[in-house]
Every structure is written in C-alpha cells, then in structure tokens.
C-alpha cells in the first residue's frame, strides 16, 4: 500500500522546511524528471467531504487518473477556509505527486490578511477547471433590480443589512459601500444554508451568494456579478469587474507546489485539459452543479490571477 509514499512525502516536507529554515536553501532537483507520474498522485481538496468542490474533485480525479495512467487519490483536508490543505501542499515535495484542487480564494486571501505559512508565490497555477458563480443577490420582490438601484435605494435613508459568508465577501461589499458612501451592515453567516433563510425570511436586505442562488430562480434575483466577468445565468447583469475594476477570486484551479519542474507541469496541464472534456465530469459540473466547465492553461491563468491580486490588494488596503 502507499503508506511509505505518505511517510516519505512527510519526511521530505520536513527536511525541506528544516533546510529552508536553516540555510535558506531551495529543494534540490528531483531525480526522476521525465518519469512523471511515477506513482499514484495525491489530489488534496481543502474542503469538507460532500461539498460541491469535493464532489467535483472526486469525479475529476477519475478522469484525470485515466489520462495520467496513474490512480489519483483524493485526500480531504478541510479547515480554515482551505488554508490548512493549502499549507500542506505548499510544503509538499515539488514533484507533481501532491497537487491541490481549490478555489483561488483559499490561495490568495489568507496570505494577504492572515498569518499563514504560504504566500502568493508558493504555488504554480497549472490549470483552471471551472468558475464559481458569485453574486450579490436580493429577494425577487425587492424594490431594486441592479446594484445601482440598490445604491440609490440605500441613499434614501436607513442603513441596509446584508448577509456575507466570509471575511473576503464582506470586504468586497464594504469596499463598494465605502466607494459609494452608503451604510451597509454585514451579518456574517455560515454559508449558503444560513444565508438563504435570512434573505428569504426578510432578515437581511441583500446577500452575497457563492452560487446557491441558481437553485432559487424566481425567488431571488442577481444584482451584480462579483466575478471579473458576467455570470452564465444572468448575462445582462454587469459585473463589479466592469463597474469598479475589482473582482473576487472566482477560479477553481489545480495548483502544484512552487519548484515543480516545467515538464511535469506541462504533462499535468495537458492531462487536465483532456480530462475536462470527460463526459461524466462535464455532465456533473454543467447539468447538475450548474457551473461552467472552463479550462484555462497555466500562462493565461497566471495573468488572470495577477489581475485578480491587483484588485484584491486594493480591497485589502481599504478595508482591513
């Protein structure tokens, strides 16, 4: 069994940390470049089992494994909004045998705002798989249909309440509020399951949604896309990328630890591209989870990430 693999990985990680801490050395060249993948690949998912990202990863792992010719072992390491799993992969041996399937929010937000043991340069972005459909939403019968309408309504008096689902979603909405000079109070909720009753029960005036609103067509409406572009389900609603030049990290990506050899990344990227065309995977993501399958290769993805980070820094500076 692959016990020895894990343990070797752990020891290698440990050795790496020690080496880096004492001498500032980087990892030596992996000995078996070219033979990738030489053993089963561990795909770390930093979220709880059963969620939509984890479900997606499990189906994707099957397709990717078939493509690479080695089984992919999905390993869930939930905690701290993805930071626990990201920390683990950042410290793993950079040989492509330990990779991470995560939302870019988990890779970008913690290093900019919290004390964590990885930074913006800890990962090589191999490929984007899909895009989360993040939005500002309101009840269907709310007296405003767009973000501009909401802002105009807010200026008529009285502060409005909104439900957020994370420090980052709160920061972005507060950024808009500060820019527009309106008073919005964020009520933190523990995810879509708590946000929906708050919104539909009229406890809050509007809410941030990570995509759950797609299940409530007719009960909720989208006021703005929080991504850089527009959402597939509401192509007529402008995004904050258009309006304010900022966007929330929205990509679901596969990353490898920094220092992974170029040819390994290329092999992986090619296999991922083919795997995203797998029929089972496409059916699950597009028809059942209602996300778009959106493959983006390493170079274009890195440029996209750089742009996201520029906006993110602006938001962090203003709100934190």
């Amino acid at each position: 069994m692959s016990h020895s693999t894990t343990r070797r990985g752990l020891l290698a990680g440990l050795a790496l940390t020690v080496a880096a801490a004492t001498a500032g050395l980087t990892a030596s060249e992996p000995a078996f470049a070219g033979a990738y993948p030489a053993k089963p690949v561990t795909l770390v998912v930093p979220y709880r089992a059963g969620g939509s990202t984890e479900t997606m990863a499990r189906v994707f792992a099957k397709a990717l494994g078939a493509e690479l010719g080695q089984p992919i072992v999905v390993r869930t390491r939930p905690g701290a909004g993805g930071a626990v799993g990201a920390t683990e992969v950042a410290a793993a041996a950079p040989d492509g045998h330990t990779i991470l399937f995560a939302a870019t929010a988990s890779l970008l937000w913690p290093p900019l705002t919290q004390k964590v043991e990885y930074d913006l340069n800890s990962f090589i972005y191999v490929a984007q798989i899909t895009e989360y459909q993040q939005a500002i939403v309101a009840k269907a019968d709310a007296p405003y249909d767009t973000l501009a309408g909401l802002i105009a309504h807010s200026k008529q008096g009285g502060g409005l309440n909104y439900a957020d689902q994370s420090a980052m979603s709160r920061a972005y909405i507060d950024f808009i509020a500060a820019k527009e000079g309106v008073e919005w109070t964020g009520i933190p909720t523990k995810g879509g399951g708590e946000m929906v009753p708050f919104l539909l029960g009229g406890k809050v005036d509007f809410a941030w949604s990570g995509g759950i609103h797609n299940r409530y067509a007719g009960k909720m409406k989208v006021l703005a896309s929080m991504n850089s572009g527009r959402l597939i389900a509401s192509p007529d609603t402008p995004s904050i990328g258009e309006t304010y030049g900022i966007a929330m990290p929205s990509q679901a990506v596969i990353v490898a630890p920094a220092g992974t050899p170029r040819d390994v990344v290329d092999t992986l990227q090619a296999a991922i591209e083919t795997a995203t065309r797998d029929a089972d995977f496409a059916d699950l993501v597009e028809n059942k989870l209602k996300f778009p399958v959106k493959f983006v290769g390493a170079t274009a993805l890195q440029a996209d990430i750089d742009q996201t980070v520029t906006g993110l820094r602006k938001v962090v500076e203003q709100t934190q």
Binding site: A49, G50, G51, T55, V196, L284, K288
Partner: peptide, 20 residues
C-alpha cells in the same frame, strides 16, 4: 426550502443534486 437542517442533510442535498 432547500436549506440543509444539518451536515447530514447538506450531504444528502449534494447527493440529490448529483442525481439531477
């Protein structure tokens, strides 16, 4: 409402969705 009552129900929701 489509709101999970607890984690177990949330997982069931996930399974529902996978099955369309």
């Amino acid at each position: 409402l489509g709101i999970p009552g607890n984690i177990a129900a949330a997982l069931l929701i996930g399974a529902f969705m996978i099955h369309g």
